[in-house]
């Protein structure tokens, strides 16, 4: 067994002493054959790792499929359009996740009502600034950066980026910043932003803005204002009709 081979074994065992490490590193620099051998063994290590991970991944995938199958058979979803299923799922998840979203410091009974409203809430999807995955964030493009942060649920970041875009004359930014503020639990700011949106010339999200404003009031605990907004929304459109009805029933 050559001294080189001993060194390489110790290296992989993580057993090199300081002086041995020095020799090892010198050899890497000065001896191309030595380096080639180390690299070859590192690649072997990597190849083992890749192979084993593939096997494990297959094993876990099988378990995952089992789980999803049994989930499907216990809860047969009605055939609705895909997005509405997703919305319902998101609502359910929100119900489950309520304890995460609502600050745990307050006692449960106090928050029960606003928790209920939170179940209706999910952030509005980004439909104005499609983000092409695969593109690395270009910091010059503030707006894209803002929506990437928004989509990745990094709402603090999104908020500050949206703030920088204030003078852009793009109404929808008011709307999305409003959602962002809800996420940050700054409901008053959220409502102000939705109001500004509704006063602006933005057309795309008028109903949505009303809907989120209502939720924001409700979660905050202002059921009078919340109800008011819901009634307005019911009058003006059919947006979220079912949910609006359910909420109004709850409030009565």
């Amino acid at each position: 067994m050559s001294i080189h081979e001993e060194l390489i074994i110790k290296y992989f065992e993580g057993n090199l002493s300081d002086s041995e490490r020095e020799v090892f590193e010198d050899l890497l620099e000065s001896d191309p054959l030595f380096k080639e051998e180390v690299v070859f063994q590192q690649k072997t290590k990597l190849a083992f790792q890749n192979n084993q991970r593939k096997v494990l991944k297959g094993f876990l995938n099988k378990i995952e499929n089992d789980i999803q199958e049994s989930e499907k058979s216990t809860a047969k979803p009605k055939s609705r359009r895909l997005w509405s299923i997703m919305a319902v799922a998101a609502a359910l998840i929100s119900i489950l996740a309520v304890t995460y979203f609502v600050k745990t410091s307050t006692s449960q009974s106090d928050d029960e009502i606003s928790q209920n409203f939170y179940a209706f809430y999910e952030p509005y999807p980004n439909v104005v600034k499609p983000i092409t995955r695969g593109e690395i964030v270009n910091p010059e493009e503030l707006e894209i950066a803002a929506f990437i942060a928004y989509e990745s649920s990094d709402f603090k970041q999104a908020d500050s980026l949206f703030a920088e875009l204030k003078n852009q004359q793009k109404e929808y930014i008011l709307f999305y910043r409003g959602i962002t503020k809800i996420e940050l639990e700054q409901y008053d700011s959220a409502n102000m932003l939705f109001e500004s949106y509704l006063y602006s010339e933005g057309m795309q999200f008028r109903d949505q803005a009303k809907w989120y404003m209502a939720l924001s009031y409700l979660v905050k605990g202002d059921s009078i204002k919340g109800k008011e907004e819901l009634v307005k929304l019911r009058k003006s459109s059919g947006y979220k009709m079912e949910e609006v009805e359910r909420l109004l029933l709850k409030l009565d």
Binding site: Y11, V39, Q42, K43, T44, L46, N50, N51
Partner: peptide
Amino acid sequence: ESFEFIDEKDPQVILLENALE
């Protein structure tokens, strides 16, 4: 540090993956 200078898509690694079997 041992992985730093190896590209994961290295063709030799792919060859090795098969050869190991």
